[in-house]
Design a protein around this nucleic acid. Structure first.
Lengths: 117, 117
DNA sequence: ACAAGTACTTACCCCAAAGTATGTAACCAT
DNA sequence: ATGGTTACATACTTTGGGGTAAGTACTTGT
């Protein structure tokens, strides 16, 4: 009966970082290999699920919907479905999602200046 | 003939993301729970190893040096050691590291506006 | 003699995120 | 009736980031 193990110095640390560090808060939302790329593609306007898939060929379908769902929960992305015969589902950025432009942009600026290697 | 397994769709994807996505490039450098926090503490000026340790009590020593080393390799942080009796090692931000201020700041701005929940 | 401080290093474990593979429901064209 | 398209779902495996715990070398204070 080796105890419940508490399993969570990790979660505790995550907690303090999240509540005490706004940067970590943001990175929770746009972290993960694919999220920034998905957001980037949605910046140019609403896209269908299949359009996103074709625009990002390397992503698996699992990762694509998984991230789209997380971003819906985080209110970065809106999903609009038409109950038609072959389903038509359109994803677009919410206001919060669009506001991320400034964040991503400052990252790009930094990368351009400091991406020499 | 189920292929050689390649061991690395992961690394391959990481590769394309890194070379094709400047945002991912940046997140590789400031990602991880502790890096933004360490950078934040170094923003207010150079700090000794033990000062950082005390400033961020929850971090383990392993994580602290690990991240400090990575950030040295990424040229975000400079290490200055004095060869004195009890070692004195001082860490400070490089120009690149200081430039991250704008990036972190835009994240904070976004978090303040969209961190309601 | 022994604890305490300074700046690390090393071996080991755990879990959650990412990837693989396959299935599903509804319809349409051939 | 068979295959293709659309938008998912779900079970299983892998991997690497993060954590735990302990050790090192050298010196000062008591």
């Amino acid at each position: 009966m080796t105890a419940v193990k508490e399993s969570s110095t990790r979660n505790f640390n995550k907690g303090i970082a999240l509540t005490s560090c706004p940067v970590t808060f943001v990175m929770e939302k746009i972290g993960g290999y694919w999220k920034p790329i998905i957001i980037f593609h949605l910046m140019s306007g609403p896209k269908r699920y299949s359009e996103l898939k074709r625009a990002i060929p390397q992503i698996t379908e699992k990762m694509l919907i998984q991230h789209l769902k997380q971003m819906q929960n985080d209110d970065l992305v809106r999903r609009d479905a038409q109950a038609v015969v072959p389903p038509v589902v359109t994803y677009s950025l919410t206001k919060s999602g669009q506001d991320l432009f400034h964040v991503l942009n400052s990252m790009v600026d930094w990368a351009v200046k400091n991406g020499s290697v």
